[in-house]
Amino acid sequence: MRRETQNILLVLLGGALLKIAITGDYLRYVKPSQQPWIIGGGAVMVLLGVVAIGRDVLAGRHKGSGGPDHEHDHSTRSTWLLLVPVLAVFLVAPPALGSDSVTRTSASAPAGYAPSGQATFPPLPAGQVVPLAVADFVSRAGWDSTDSLRGRTVSLTGFVVHSRGRTLLARMVIGCCAADAFPVRVQLIGGQADPLPDDTWVRVTGQWVPGKGRSEFSYTPQLDVATLREIPQPRDPYEY
């Protein structure tokens, strides 16, 4: 591959990183704290490409003035692969993980709580309706020895998934990037969400239905839904 092509690819790839970092699309792929890294990495990539292009142009003008050193005379077919993420970001823009990942992965408990059996949680904040992260709701429902959810109305945000005849509210939790995502899920009781297609984002309020299977690895708590509202996909689709 020619040097110019490599430089163009670097500029394109760096530009792709900068684009998703600035538009906020990066939140579909990685956690928010990665943003400075993506901007820095993208900027350096663009800079390396532009500097090399500039130097080549100058060197072309003053011929023989000792152009850049050519140490890469081996085959660089692999460099073509840099085009794949460029095309993926600019043309396809893959969406955030959704219902497919939820049905693909068997239930798993949020990190840290499940093995010890029971745990104590800080009391829920006061208020008629308590907004909670889905992961927090699942761990409190399954593993809280103080039963802090009992009798409280909570508000949860997530997307609808239909799986084995049940209607679930799910959310993906990521540690670093979407490759390590795992789902948390709550079964919705009451039927309001049944007609909604998969991947519809909703905000529901309701109360936890204490049931059997608590403290088990695959426990999916039930929520008796009081209100349900469709919402647009939040800017940040994951929990952390």
Binding site: L13, L17, I20, Y26, R28, Y29, V30, Q34, W37, I38, G40, G41, G42, V44, M45, V84, P85, A88, V89, V92, P94, P95, A96, L97, S99, D100, S101, R104, C176, C177, A178, A179
Partner: peptide
């Protein structure tokens, strides 16, 4: 690419790239 499995794969692919490229740059 509008097949659920491919969509998931594409997202994971971009995620690994976006996550790892800045470190490669470093």
């Amino acid at each position: 690419l509008d097949v659920p499995a491919l969509r998931t794969g594409a997202t994971v692919f971009v995620a690994v790239c976006v996550q790892a490229l800045p470190f490669l740059v470093l």
